[in-house]
Write a protein that binds this DNA or RNA. Structure first.
Length: 347
DNA sequence: CATGCGTGGTA
DNA sequence: TTACCAAGCAT
């Protein structure tokens, strides 16, 4: 390399690279300092060092998908009592796994958790891979969860990109994208300020910031540890980021539930596919709003992720695929929240 | 890449 | 009451 070009490069690096480094370090250090100050004690979190138990991290991260911390805490504690180790989960019956998940929603998470526990025991020597690029191959583990496990339990320097991180990055850099495109922009921006160590803490800090100060509505910018880096704040446009994505209306559906009781036994059936797969239910069919209105019963209403459902319960006596269960044994079976509401009306 | 997949909290 | 949204993944 010629002397002149080397000098030019040196000048360039001296003028740009240190600035970038400085920004990176300042941002990360200020964010981490804030997090170490405000971090809550949680049964599935260890702050200040690498988490010693990948199984705990895995289970908690799966539970935390689209689910609030407050809801997860009790489920996590009960789960670890019921299935203390990966091996315990691998050895369990799916019935018991779904029962432990009952009420938490998105039940494929529980089915995949069980599947992957067996997969890890059978094919990975019961050990978790430490790299996110390996973890992501496991069923139920996507880019978010893979990065969460590898950073929190193995200190891999890879960012998690969830709704919080997308929102924080969208505001810091005034990112104009929405949905998938925003996720990729946010990933690039976040990875640039990702430190080499304390990676799990850094990721947790980013998410905690989004979950508390940098909230969707009425963020607390005055208390923000990284306010000085925020472009949207500087331009007084925090409320314009991230850009809202167009949403579609949720259809309303109706149904009638058949309450069948003989000799103290109640008829239930197991769902075998699709929505709420492998959970149990009282038999029911979808009906139109006209028939729904003609049934003189107080409706049970429930909101699913993509439609709303109203159900009315009628006494019936017919035959179909299913089993008869003692009323007192009904709750041994895993039901969705919807069915628990329906059962609640009959007790 | 858009859509299907639960539930609870909050404005 | 409605609308929105929360530490996503599979297909």
């Amino acid at each position: 390399m010629k002397k002149s070009s080397k000098g030019f490069l040196s000048d360039l690096l001296l003028s740009i690279y240190p600035l970038h480094c400085l920004f990176m370090r300042e941002f990360s250090e200020k964010l981490l300092a804030w997090y170490y100050d405000v971090a809550r004690e949680l049964p599935f979190r260890v702050v200040g060092k690498v988490h010693p138990n990948p199984y705990h991290v895995w289970v908690s991260e799966i539970m935390l998908q689209q689910t609030t911390v407050a809801t997860v805490i009790d489920y996590f504690n009960r789960w670890m009592t019921r299935f203390p180790t990966l091996q315990d989960l691998a050895d369990a019956d799916e019935h018991d796994v779904l029962k432990a998940w009952e009420g938490l929603g998105y039940y494929s998470r529980a089915r995949n958790l069980h599947f992957t526990a067996k997969d890890l025991v059978d094919n990975y020597g019961g050990q978790f891979p430490s790299m996110s690029k390996e973890l992501v191959k496991l069923k139920g583990i996507g880019p978010y969860t893979a990065a969460a496990i590898s950073s929190i339990a193995f200190d891999e320097s890879i960012v998690v990109v969830d709704g919080n991180v997308c929102r924080v990055m969208a505001r810091l850099h005034m990112l104009p994208e929405v949905a998938k495109a925003l996720e990729e922009s946010a990933r690039l921006k976040a990875q640039k300020v990702m430190p080499d160590h304390h990676c799990g803490d850094f990721n947790s800090a980013l998410m905690e910031l989004g979950a508390t100060l940098c909230s969707p509505t009425s963020p607390s910018c005055e208390d923000c540890p990284v306010q000085e880096f925020c472009k949207a704040y500087a331009k007084n446009k925090v409320d314009q980021f991230p850009k809202p994505k167009p949403k579609l209306a949720q259809p309303q559906k109706y149904g009638k539930v058949f309450w069948m009781e003989r000799d103290g036994k109640v008829f239930i059936r197991k769902r075998t596919e699709g929505l709420l797969k492998n959970l149990w239910e009282l038999p029911w069919v979808e009906i139109d709003s006209k028939e729904f209105d003609q049934i003189d019963q107080k409706p049970v209403r429930h909101v699913f992720s993509h439609f709303k459902l109203g159900l009315k319960v009628i006494d019936a006596d017919l035959e179909s695929e299913g089993i008869w269960v003692e009323k007192s044994k009904l709750l041994d079976y895993p039901f969705s929240k919807l069915m628990l509401k329906v059962l609640g009306t009959k007790s």
